[in-house]
Design a protein around this nucleic acid. Structure first.
Lengths: 202, 202
DNA sequence: CGCAATATCAACCATTTGGTTAAACCAATT
DNA sequence: AATTGGTTTAACCAAATGGTTGATATTGCG
């Protein structure tokens, strides 16, 4: 039994599929390419995941949903808004560094089929409530200015996700290498929370 | 001659193609669907635009490139950073309101083929230089804190573009209607510059 | 071992899809 | 009216693609 097989075919398929799907999107991904990347036969793909749609869902559940759940969870147990923002941004960026293609992939598939992926979004609902409460508390204590908390959340997520979505544009327009881009991202774990907090502090 | 024909077949094809391409992406778009949407035969598509790639380029040049050029141009002639930021954000959001699917489409195609679309990005280079200069000037006058201007530009673009890219996620997680989303966007023409300027003002 | 269940594969099939062809249409010109 | 040029169409084609089948390994177990 080869070392490759030991890893478990199903898991290997999911990893390959995630790479291909995030690279090419649902429409652009080819079953043959997934099979090749997993080092197996195309028929075996349909043996484990009946069709493309189910394979896609498998990838989405195992990858995207878990990653984003992780990000939302970083808010849990926080008692102060600023601390929560720092944790959220750090978690967001760390997850994106692990899988830089993810945000664009998710944005795409959410646009393609907004209804079908409700469950994915719902996982963040709980943490969203907590975030709103932290904002309200901070506002009451006079620590921050009056700001629409929903807009604040949009801004935070925008600054975390967008560099990964617009990466080719950013690297090219600023004439920086991939390595410099990586350094910029790492720096943003600190600068983004600073940027946000400076903007809302009373 | 019917009123429809009067508009010019080529132009009508481009409009239809832009709708289909931005809705489905390059890989997901079907030539037949473009033909249907333009109310013409599929063969006629190939008569005007030899193949899918050329049709895509036609759409990109006529749509995306023009739109983004417009945004960059809003910086021209500005003398003060804050004023420039206000103009840039307003132009960015206005263009996106006109064509909400555009940022996701561009992000996708730029990722798919970073090399092939250099010309598109290059159009912004001139304005980018101006932006850097405005930041340096403001810094010298002590009006703003010390901040990496490239990161600032990333943040600005992130806050402008991301709501359109993550729209399904935002509307669902905040439980708002399309109309409420539209209002939020309009409001952001003011709140985003405020947010940014508050954050960088010395 | 022998046998049943699971896993894997090569070859195949039906449909979709980008692209072509040859003929018809139509408006202007001779 | 006949010619000519650009425009439009229906029918067609080859390649790509998602999915199936039936046979062949491989594994676990009595």
């Amino acid at each position: 039994m080869s070392a490759v097989k030991e890893e478990g075919t199903e898991h290997r398929i999911l990893e390959a599929a995630q790479r291909v799907f995030t690279r090419k999107g649902m429409a652009g991904a080819r079953m043959q390419e997934v099979a090749d990347e997993a080092g197996i036969n195309k028929a075996l793909l349909h043996y484990y995941f009946r069709d493309k749609q189910r394979l896609f869902e498998g990838v989405f559940k195992g990858g995207a949903e878990k990653q984003f759940g992780c990000i939302w969870d970083s808010l849990k147990g926080r008692e102060h808004l600023f601390e929560a923002i720092e944790a959220f941004v750090a978690a967001y960026i760390d997850r994106m560094v692990e899988n830089p293609q993810l945000p664009l992939f998710i944005a795409n598939e959410l646009n393609r089929d907004p209804e079908g992926l409700r469950a994915f979004i719902d996982r963040g609902m709980e943490s969203r409530q907590l975030f709103l409460k932290l904002v309200a508390d901070a506002r009451e204590r006079g620590e921050i200015i009056d700001i629409d908390p929903r807009e604040l959340l949009v801004n935070i997520m925008a600054m975390c996700a967008h560099p990964f979505i617009a990466r080719p544009m950013i690297t090219h327009i600023h004439g920086i290498t991939d390595e410099a881009f990586r350094r910029m991202i790492i720096k943003r774990r600190k600068t983004v929370p600073e940027f946000i907090i400076r903007s809302i502090r009373a």
